[in-house]
């Protein structure tokens, strides 16, 4: 199996789906001539031409709406946001148009569009460029929210998202673009709404998604040296949430730590914990603990930024608490 970066896995998915279905097109800032702000769309303009790889003005509200409108009449747009921070300008189109269209038209008009781009913090980009918004979109009925953590998942999930008949919020990780992994060639589809056990273990469950999968796996590695076997559950899809996999793991380990990049208040982890306390109450030997980003705007200073982010040490401290260790 070939080894690809996360970036190239996404590129491969785009290329394959655009080849497969001529209703699929990509639009966004710098996706064409510039080859993509993060080079995800590298080579696509040359291959598919300017009608299918569309450079837009810096006009998030406008081109998100263009994507929704095109999807309403049968195209399958992939709208790239340079980052999800900029997509705040487009929230009206995502929430009031994309998510509602099928319902308020009584099922007549769907919006088969993918909105994608990197979310969360990279390095020292400060407050306005370092935000994780998955819980915002996951709050909205009508949207699906997908967040792959590995190159293989990135390819398989993007292909599924493009083929999905509903609007999909597809949040990538800027810090993941260079991550390498084995990626199946060709028709590799990962169903939306299915979590994945990235590492098996019986002592504690670490629930995570996107970038925090790496954090959790590192923590699990260190814990293993200490005799603690952590199970790492990668949600992969935030909405619809794969509660079955979550509950099965917690039922096995009886202790759980939920890790996410975003802020704690009303975050994704809050939803996960709600599911666990309700449906796995009798399985719990300890309260579920969350490891999240600090409840502050992201600071620029390197040390402060590090302190604000979830990291393996914080995960291990949380694991020790749910295991009642020292």
């Amino acid at each position: 199996m070939p080894t690809l970066t996360y970036r190239d896995a996404l590129n491969q998915a785009l290329r394959e789906e655009m080849t497969r279905d001529d209703r699929v097109f990509l639009m966004g800032e710098e996706v064409g001539v510039y080859q993509g702000a993060y080079k995800v769309s590298r080579g696509l303009l040359e291959e598919f031409g300017p009608m299918r790889v569309v450079d837009t003005p810096i006009t998030e509200l406008g081109f998100a709406g263009v994507g929704v409108g095109a999807a309403m009449v049968g195209l399958r747009p992939i709208v790239e946001f340079m980052t999800w921070n900029f997509a705040l300008l487009a929230v009206d189109q995502l929430v009031n148009s994309a998510a509602k269209m099928r319902y308020m038209s009584g099922g007549q008009v769907g919006v088969p569009a993918v909105f994608r781009g990197p979310g969360g913090a990279a390095l020292q980009l400060a407050a306005q460029h370092s935000q994780a918004f998955e819980s915002w979109y996951a709050h909205i009925p009508g949207l699906k929210v997908v967040m792959p953590a590995t190159p293989a998942d990135a390819k398989g999930l993007l292909k599924s998202a493009i083929r999905d008949d509903d609007p999909v919020i597809f949040i990538e990780g800027e810090m993941l673009y260079n991550v390498k992994g084995e990626v199946p060639e060709g028709e590799h589809l990962i169903p939306i709404g299915r979590a994945d056990v990235k590492r098996e273990g019986g002592d504690v469950t670490l629930i995570c998604h996107s970038k925090t999968v790496t954090v959790a796996l590192k923590a699990a590695e260190q814990l293993a040296g200490d005799g603690v076997h952590a199970e790492v559950v990668d949600l992969r899809t935030i909405r619809p949430l794969d509660t079955e996999t979550v509950l099965a793991s917690v039922g096995k380990t009886h202790r759980c730590v939920v890790v996410e990049e975003g802020w704690s208040f009303a975050g994704v982890g809050a939803q996960v914990v709600d599911v666990i306390q309700r449906d796995a109450f009798d399985e719990l030997d300890a309260p579920v603990i969350r490891v999240t980003g600090a409840d502050v705007p992201m600071p620029y200073n390197k040390q402060l930024e590090k302190a604000a982010k979830a990291d393996p040490a914080k995960v291990i401290a949380a694991v020790n608490r749910v295991l009642y260790r020292g």
Partner: peptide
Amino acid sequence: IPLTTGMAFA
């Protein structure tokens, strides 16, 4: 209004 632009794009 952007939706209409999108339909015209299509």
